[in-house]
Design a binder for these strands. Sequence first.
DNA 1: TGTACATCAGTGAACGCGCGTTCACTGATGTAC
DNA 2: TGTACATCAGTGAACGCGCGTTCACTGATGTAC
Lengths: 206, 206
Amino acid sequence: VNVRARAKRGEGERLRPEIVEAGMRLLLETGDEEAVTIRAVARAVGVSPPSIYLHFPDKGALLLAVCEETFATLDDHIERAVAGIDDPMDELRARGRAYVDFGLENPEHYRILFMTRPTDSHPALTPQEALASGAFVHHLEAVQRAVDAGVLPPEVDPLLAAIGLWSGVHGITSLLIAKPDFPWPDRDQLVDHVLTTLVRGLVQGA
Amino acid sequence: VNVRARAKRGEGERLRPEIVEAGMRLLLETGDEEAVTIRAVARAVGVSPPSIYLHFPDKGALLLAVCEETFATLDDHIERAVAGIDDPMDELRARGRAYVDFGLENPEHYRILFMTRPTDSHPALTPQEALASGAFVHHLEAVQRAVDAGVLPPEVDPLLAAIGLWSGVHGITSLLIAKPDFPWPDRDQLVDHVLTTLVRGLVQGA
DNA sequence: TGTACATCAGTGAACGCGCGTTCACTGATGTAC
DNA sequence: TGTACATCAGTGAACGCGCGTTCACTGATGTAC
């Protein structure tokens, strides 16, 4: 079992990020949201269960903090993947691929963000937070740029198109995560197919 | 609390479908897979918990039976919705809409079918079962008919196109279920947008 | 026709488990005088 | 410079809970003789 040196006076806040990070690690290692319990997180940090309550009012608040951290990580992952891409269409594709990649590399993180209904012990970001989140705003802006550049026709509603593209990549990601044993076609081929088909449909749009 | 008359000699099998039906009902009423416990199902049927074990070896087997029943219901729902539609394109759209409708009317049923990873206490259908399941086969055949009728170009790979369309409607359905508080555009508009865009993309396909 | 008996469809009580959370506490450390 | 004390960062033990599952049982009912 882990043991952790007690923080010095005034450095109590050091424990909080360690707790969130332990939650992230447990999700990755166990691949099971249910493994992220107060007791398991405390064990992973090397601290007793009641210590968690010095930094979070309850389990839901802890999970919410893990979600926020994951959201930031997702945004970061995508922004890195598209850095330096100029062509708006290439960028849209690269965004889609990076999104799916993140989901499949971190399936349980993806699951707590996008595949679970909010409950008492697992609160969601508010709609405002979600809309304003980096990843969504960046995606929406990328669609807008494609319209502005004339790559997508001007009649395209950027918000609807953005959500449609999101649905497509989310559909693939979540099905691959939820049904790993289904005889899927090659993942990249599937992603390319859906992205290409959707984009072509948008380009040819009335 | 419910009470149930003991079955007559030789009619013990009557309890099994009552158990499955109680599981379905609990999913609908509570909207929470975790509410479907051995004890809750027994209570709903009006029977003691150990009685469940007369018909199912463990909790997983019970949940699997509920999944199979749900799969059949989904297939039925869609087939009813497309009965009498001749135009292959209209049929594909109607299938998509019926799929989304089923998911939103039975969110927790949808969730156990398509949004949860198989675990010990929640086994999945085998890939073969899933591939051979009515709903999937019927969808694939509908895509094939659209190709045969020349509505979709002959280069379209029916399996890839079918899975792509599925991803699209699944993406919408599962996002609406998982994030009910997000400021989505109008549901029908969203479904139509994605279906139309995907189909147009397929039609214009190289 | 009567009756012993096997079978069937269940039941009641108990098991151990891990969980979230609370409560009273401890002991090192910085600070005021 | 010494010391009483408040504060801070935790801890240990316990609470009640509902869960899946097991075990020994019960009592009505059909059947063999």
